[in-house]
């Protein structure tokens, strides 16, 4: 029974990571791509870590998994924020250049 639960967690986690990559290819602009690249991988690694914790079932593994989950959920929005901020500077620069060239 527990084998089935662990297998489901593993498959669902890798499936969400695969979805993030497909979204990275399919979506049109950077902002939509970041939607796929922020939410889906962190959720996928969350599910996989739950599966791994059930598999090993020792306190040290629980602590490490909690640390990874906490850190990823704290930093994924910050990384997206940093990427968008740098892109906005470039966007502004490009539009100004176009105006001056015309």
């Amino acid at each position: 029974m527990d084998n089935v639960i662990i297998s489901i967690f593993l498959l669902a986690g890798s499936f969400f990571i695969l979805i993030a990559s497909i979204g990275l290819i399919r979506l049109k602009d950077l902002y939509s791509r970041l939607h796929a690249a922020t939410k889906a991988p962190s959720f996928g690694i969350f599910l996989m870590l739950i599966g791994v914790s059930i598999f090993f079932n020792t306190p040290m593994v629980y602590i490490k998994s909690l640390f990874v989950i906490f850190f990823i959920y704290l930093t994924a929005p910050l990384a997206a924020h940093a990427i968008i901020k740098s892109f906005q500077e470039k966007d502004k620069d490009d539009s100004e250049k176009k105006i001056t060239e015309l």
């Binding site: 939607h35 922020t38 962190s42 959920y73 994924a76 929005p77 997206a80 924020h81 968008i84 906005q88």
Partner: peptide
Amino acid sequence: SNLLSMTPGTISMDISEDKKIVRVH
């Protein structure tokens, strides 16, 4: 802002200087 980035269809982009307005995609 963390909740915004993790909920359906929004990403927080920028916060104004006086921390009164959040810009969102």
